[in-house]
Design a protein around this nucleic acid. Sequence first.
DNA 1: CGGTTCCTTTTGGTATTACCAATTTTCTTG
DNA 2: CAAGAAAATTGGTAATACCAAAAGGAACCG
Lengths: 251, 251
Amino acid sequence: MSDIEKGPDRLYQDLARNLTEELASGAYPVGARLPAERELAVKYGVSRPTVREAIIALEVQGLIEVRIGSGAYVRRLPGSEDLPGFNVSAFELTEARLLFEGEAAALAATQITDEELAEIEGLVEAIARENNDPRGSEKADRAFHLAIAKATRNGAIFDAIERLWDLRSTSPEAALLHEKARTANIKPVVDEHSAIVEALRARDPVAARLAMRGHLSQVIDSLLFATEERQIQEARRAAQAKRDRYARATA
Amino acid sequence: MSDIEKGPDRLYQDLARNLTEELASGAYPVGARLPAERELAVKYGVSRPTVREAIIALEVQGLIEVRIGSGAYVRRLPGSEDLPGFNVSAFELTEARLLFEGEAAALAATQITDEELAEIEGLVEAIARENNDPRGSEKADRAFHLAIAKATRNGAIFDAIERLWDLRSTSPEAALLHEKARTANIKPVVDEHSAIVEALRARDPVAARLAMRGHLSQVIDSLLFATEERQIQEARRAAQAKRDRYARATA
DNA sequence: CGGTTCCTTTTGGTATTACCAATTTTCTTG
DNA sequence: CAAGAAAATTGGTAATACCAAAAGGAACCG
């Protein structure tokens, strides 16, 4: 009955991931009510406090809204509304990362030490292990990118890149889209990461920039692949065109 | 017994807010360990499950990191008023801007409209007027750089660059250094800004990147010129060497 | 018959207790 | 003094109970 058994660490994280995937898959439409905590507890074979922790995790991320005495309701799904304000899409975030982290990798290639290189190589292996585990998180992935940012020896660069990474969690739409893309696309990331490390080891800034851009370009592609809504399809074409224009201009 | 009273709704939210405020106030430095869950429970007069829920809320937000069997540790300071600028020198800030704004200018060159171009040209004149006035501020300068960031059509890029610009105000030393540099060096900035606009008007990404980097490179030079302290002299040489290495590698 | 009231049920909110597992500390012990 | 084992500490999870808010339905009243 339970898809989660011997979760390595915190159970609530596994459960939260499961629920997030169900939300992304559309099992619960917008506005729908999730099963009661007690039901989820028996369904997933965990205790009610654990269910509550997972619920709270989703609530903090803005994915659901809990109404006392009533239940937990789905808040928003990707593409449902285009708030003209500060809502930064997953595409914009990743495009920004492509630019900034590309330059950071180039700078890091001229600064990196053997120790940092070894640490980053270890993270690549950790990422591979994460990808083999369907329930794997992306902690190692985050650590990988931040380690490169740190190798620039520039706190401002590190801060900006860390912020960009964490920004994706603040937008429910972006978080869901990334989750969909992650579960749908688990293949070539290892090779891409290896290429980045290779360039860093060679202390080749140009190659490092290219490898990092290639990697994040793939991420954008997987995001596009995970996008289905028609509204987003427009943005998809626009983003693609923009990226092509920029890439051609800097080739 | 408890400092938390008012909130009729979820207790864990009140607790989480309290803890966040304590983190922001610096009561727990980065890397420090928070009191054990059982201690927090008695301290705030709530049960341990409630404490756990608050802890998890902070963890999901990335404020703390929970290590099994060890405790909860402070990760970073809350979003808006966190002070990464404390350790970030004016040199690092400007170096980051050199990288990021260079790319932003390149991307903007492929996106910019005639209207935006006209606005930016107007800002160049405003900068010239500002420089002629010894008491002039740098509002137009800021507006100039942000207008280019906005022309990328990417909110994440705009946000990151705006943040980098504003970060200089968070460090008194950095602000002072910038002020000294500004008053000591007022001549070529107009030409540099004109060169950027020229490249944008030509829709030439490579030229735009080069012009922006050249401008911010000049800013770094003026910062170095305005630096007198011996301690900084070391950083000066290091930064100069790093920049040279990067520039050579990307020429 | 329609609407209101009230009670019962359901659901989330919190507390209590207990026990397990990982970690850290302390104290043996060679 | 160091290595290793035992104890204390800490987070992780479970089970249970009770409260308060909300929802649903039945009884009551107009």
